[in-house]
Structures are given as C-alpha cells and as structure tokens.
Amino acid sequence: MITLTHFLVVGACLFSIGLYAVLARRNAILVLVGIELMINAAIVNLVAFSRYDKAFYGGQVFALFAIVLAAAAVAVALAIILNVYKFYKSVNPEDIRNLKD
C-alpha cells in the first residue's frame, strides 16, 4: 500500500515542472503542455485522496470531469493558437501585443 504522501510529492513535482514550462517557454504550444502537466498533477492528488472515500468516490468522479474539461480546453486553446498564428505568423506569446478590434 503506497502512502498518500508519495502521491502528493509526485504531484507537487509535476506541478512545479508545469509552472516552470508556463513561465519560461516561448512557444504557446509548450505553454499549453505546461498547463496540461499542472492539470495532471491536480488529478494525481484527486485520485490519491479518493482512495479513502469509498462512499461517494468524489475524487475519482471529479478526476473524470477534470480530464474532460482539460480536453475541451485544449481544443479551444489550439483553435485560438492557430488563429493567432494566422494573424501574427508567430506563436510566441511575447510577439502578441495588440487585440483585434
């Protein structure tokens, strides 16, 4: 039986790596990958706590919802990234300076 702390530490590591990717990378797609890593870390925590909730399975059900929401977010974000690329010819967040009116 693996203890809760193991899962929490693994989740913390994945979350910090995702945070680093969001802060440091200059490609919108890799920033998105960083956000996905952070979501995965959150799901690890949900699932780890869910082992002690046999009555309602709250963690596992909400982990499912989180996976579905992340997939929807990726679809919309990639559509936006492709539009931005068509407009600016770049996916570097630094180059995107003005909003279209």
Binding site: I2, A48, I67, A71, V74, L78
Partner: peptide, 29 residues
C-alpha cells in the same frame, strides 16, 4: 491509487485525443 477507470480514461482522452491535437497544431504552426 486504485483508480483503474481514470487510468483508462487518461489513456483514451489524453494520449488518443489531446496529444494528437497538440501534434496537429505543432505541425500547422
């Protein structure tokens, strides 16, 4: 963590869907 259904969903949705979308966007941009 004894969440086999979540693991299968992760494989289906993330590996099957999200990653293909990411690769697709990468190839286009």
């Amino acid at each position: 963590a004894l969440a086999d259904f979540i693991a299968i969903t992760q494989l289906l949705i993330y590996v099957g869907g999200v990653l293909v979308l990411l690769l697709f966007a990468f190839m286009l941009s």
